[in-house]
Amino acid sequence: MNRNISCTVNSKSMTWQIDIRMSLADVLREHGYTSVKEGCGVGECGACAVLIDDVAVDSCLYLAVWADGCNIRTTEGESKEGKLSPVQQAYLETGSVQCGFCTPGLVMASTSFVEQHKGQKVSREQIRKGLAGNLCRCTGYDGVVRAVEQCIDAEE
């Protein structure tokens, strides 16, 4: 049941032999992208969220074969040359990180939301709706909302 897929991960081209029974989360973790966490394995928590062609997807509920030809982004690739991305930085400043297990998924969902709403005025309600696919048990989300707000305000 093996297949080859070619994709870009955090700007690097990859060709991987995969088993078609694997989820994208399985494949990414196997290749060392361990920021992709598994909290449920069935799309309920968002801990495994990555961006596929800039769209946030729960990689546990996504066949790896579907990533063939796609551009994948994980949290590892968001900080460049030792500099955190604006979303990562905002998470730290607003105290939105505790155990950190939900964080990579939330960072990616937030990144996609911020990129899609560049230059727009957004309400807290919209931010909440945009991050509703990610559970966090530690923070109560208060800082998370402020982190995203801060990033969008900075974009304006």
Binding site: G43, A49, A56, L61, A109, S112, G133
Partner: peptide, 9 residues
């Protein structure tokens, strides 16, 4: 439906 990631697929 679901959340954003679910609606995306």
């Amino acid at each position: 439906i679901g959340g954003p990631q679910v609606r995306n697929v």
